[in-house]
Amino acid sequence: QITLTLSSWVPPAHLLTRAQSDWCGEVSKATSGRIQCNLLPKPVAPAPATFDAVRDGLVDLSFSVHGYTPGRFTMGKVAEMPFLGDSAVATSVAYQRIYEKHLAKLDEHKGMHVITVFTHGPGVIFNNKKAIATLADMDGIKFRVGGGVVNDVGKAIGANMTLKPAPQSYELMSSGVVDGVWFPDESIVSFKLDKLVKYRTAVPGGLYNTSFALVMNEATWKKIPKADQDIINKMSGEWAARFIGKYWDETDEKSRQVQKEAGVQSITADAKFVADFKAKTAGIEDAWVKEAEGKGLANAAAVLQELRAEIAKVK
């Protein structure tokens, strides 16, 4: 019998903590209890240090965001581009397929056994000043954004951005330091922003996205007997991407309900908005293509095209 020690840097009730624990629970069931799971009461490391904590065996299983350690993971950015898709299941499953086919061989997750890569739901524009229907409406509104591609997006459209860690969002908004955030719907509830935001602009395909991976310590993986490895392999990759994606889509949906009850006005960006936006952010994709090719990914532009095509295919 092997006990996997799990750590999560988001709160216990957060969908990622639940999804990870439940995934491990499914593994436990499938292996008739030969694999057990033990979720630590407190995270062993903050989010950016979590991949290292897994690599060094501080914990056996955890997840993190590729963009939290800039410079380390280039490939993940492919899944962070604007307008990829409207559901976490679709983007996650397609991203995992592309990862398996093109990205895994570049071995960016050294010393870790990748269970799956995945994304969150579509990125949405929130603020408490005015309804944003055109790009020009964003003028004079201060947004909190994270680092990575979303930062490049903000720069490209000339938005007034404050780069601060996500857990500071509540403090930033409640104190009026910023007027809005770019987040997936889920985060509005998990960071308790539902009473603070007044306007929501959904962008078809999502304003941006975030690339995650669920990883296991390499040595722990090797300790697991072949038969159980086979079982886990079946529950990894696309299966796990879909598993986690569902949690995300459900939580996004619940958050939209909460927002509705809190009186958040919601609109959907029109074709002109999307076209204007695309024109300004085209350079971001080109920049990634160049960067990825520099790191050894042949024909990165085609990979990005393939990801978009794949997302459209996923049911």
Binding site: D52, A53, G57, L58, K164
Partner: peptide, 19 residues
């Protein structure tokens, strides 16, 4: 031991945190 030493290193470098 590798895990313990790595977490020690992490605490030292993480002390330079914005919060």
């Amino acid at each position: 031991w590798p895990a313990a030493l790595s977490s020690a290193a992490q605490e030292f470098v993480d002390i330079g945190s914005y919060t």
